[in-house]
Structures are given as C-alpha cells and as structure tokens.
Simulated assay, not measured.
Amino acid sequence: MIKKVGILVLVLIVPTFIYLGLKLNGKNHYQLPRFIPAIDSASGEILMRENPDRKWNEPEKDTVFQTIPEFALINQKGQKFDSKNLKGKIFVASFFFTRCGTICPKISFQLARVRDAFISDEEIKFISMSVDPKFDQVDKLADYANRFEAKSGQWDFLTGEKKYIYPLILKGFHVPLADASEYDQAIKNPDETFIHSERLVLVDKEGVIRGFYVGTDPKDVDRLLMEIKVLKSIYQQ
C-alpha cells in the first residue's frame, strides 16, 4: 500500500515541479534562418568566422552572411534617403513601379496590411524601390505613397539612377529584375517592360536577409507578419 501511495505521489507531484521549473526558469528560443552566405572571391568557398562564445554543442566557426550594401536614394518627399536610416532597424523591402497595373498594387496593398500591424512600432521600417526610376520621379512617388497612406520615415518609396538601383536590387537583395526594352525595342507596354520580383524581403538589424515572401499571396504575407514578430522576440532574448 505504501509503495502504491509513493508511486501516486511521484506521478502527481513530479510533473508539477517540472512545469513550475519551466515556467519560472525556462525561455522560449525562437529561430529564424539567415540567407545568402558570403563567398570568398578567391577560393569560392563560404566564409566562416570563429565563434568564441559557442556552447559545447555548437560548432567552432559560424557562417558569415552577406549584408545589404549601403545605398543612398531619393524618397517621395524629395529627400535623400540613406541606408543609415535603417541601421539598427528591422525592415521589409519591396520592388515596384508606379505605372504597374498588375502585381504592384497587390504587393503594396499587402505591404500596407503589414505596415498597419506595426503602425506604432519605431523598430519596423518599410522601403519600396522603383524599378522604373526614370519615370518614377518624386511627384509620381508622392502620389503613389498617398494611395497607401504611407508616411516617409516609416514607409519610404525610393528612386534614383537606374544604373545604381538595378545592381543594388539584383546583387544586394538577391531578387530577379530585368528591363525587357533593353533586348526588344518594340516593347512599349510598361507591364511587359519591367520584369521584377513580387517578393518581399525581410532584413534584420545587422542587414542580413532573414526571409523572402510572395507579396501577392495573403497567406505568405501572414507568414511575414509572424516572422517579424519572431525576429523581434529573438532580439529580446
């Protein structure tokens, strides 16, 4: 009888102590992948760096990941927008042009939904880069920004020189982009001219890409919303 009582106590009490221990001392450890490893130009191998703070079960070296390069463009207010404005911020980048009649309005609508979720959060920023910068001057950007009630400083629509923007989007944000008119002068329709990605790109405070999302897919944008919160939680751990 005593043995049975002892077993019953263990069954009832031990789980309680385990729960309390986890509740009082446990932490939630969220993970979010990093994208685009840095490559050594000489060897072609992925760059690694020492990990002096590693735990016993972690590797001695960490992968080095590419960061978004520094840039300077012009926003919808006609003001210089420097990438330093994003230093220490989590931000979402998108790519569009104001004459776009297909996917761009859909992307901007979804991005506005994400913006609304973080409307009072100074830690979260948004940028939208024009892939038609010759046409998309400040007045065009301002009109487009007003359609989505975008405020500069929180959501900036950016333009500049094409020779500067295209390499930045292709090599910095790692999304596809092309101007079809460079190959076929007969193409006149803007929606057929500028072939750009519908991806949204999530970038952390260090400038490392943490996620790609289909900007026209509400479910994938829901994933972006969740992963922004995850990224914020990682910084709070």
Rank of each mutant, 00 (worst) to 15 (best):
F96T: 01
Q66I: 05
R34V: 03
D204Y: 08
G101K: 12
K162L: 09
G153H: 14
E149R: 08
A142R: 15
K188I: 13
K163R: 09
D179N: 15
P69Q: 12
L12A: 14
T63N: 03
L24Y: 10
V203R: 02
T16G: 13
T63C: 04
V11I: 15
E192T: 01
L158A: 06
W155L: 07
S128C: 08
F35C: 05
K27D: 09
L111M: 14
I124D: 06
Y30V: 03
V138W: 12
L177F: 09
R210M: 07
G6N: 06
L24M: 07
A180E: 12
P167G: 05
A142Y: 14
F91C: 05
I13W: 02
A42D: 11
E60F: 10
I7S: 11
D220S: 11
I18M: 04
R115K: 14
R223T: 14
G211D: 06
G101N: 06
K163D: 15
R49G: 03
Q76V: 12
P176F: 10
A186I: 09
E60Y: 10
F97I: 01
V114G: 02
K23T: 09
R115F: 11
V221I: 03
E60T: 11
A117F: 06
R223Q: 10
F96Y: 11
I195S: 03
P133H: 04
N189A: 07
L12Q: 07
Y164V: 13
L202P: 01
Y183P: 00
V14G: 00
I103S: 01
I124H: 02
I165A: 02
K232F: 01
N75V: 12
Q154R: 11
A178Q: 11
I7T: 15
I124M: 09
D139N: 14
S41M: 07
K4N: 15
E161W: 05
D40I: 14
F135R: 04
Y183I: 08
I119E: 13
M129S: 04
A180H: 09
Y183F: 15
Y30M: 02
F157A: 02
H29M: 10
M48G: 01
D156N: 15
D139K: 14
G88W: 09
S130T: 14
N28Y: 04
E70C: 04
Q236D: 02
D136Y: 09
K171D: 11
L225Q: 08
D139M: 10
R113M: 06
L202W: 03
A112P: 00
Q76E: 13
I103L: 03
S128W: 10
Y164I: 12
D62H: 12
S43F: 11
A38I: 12
P105S: 01
E161I: 09
M226D: 09
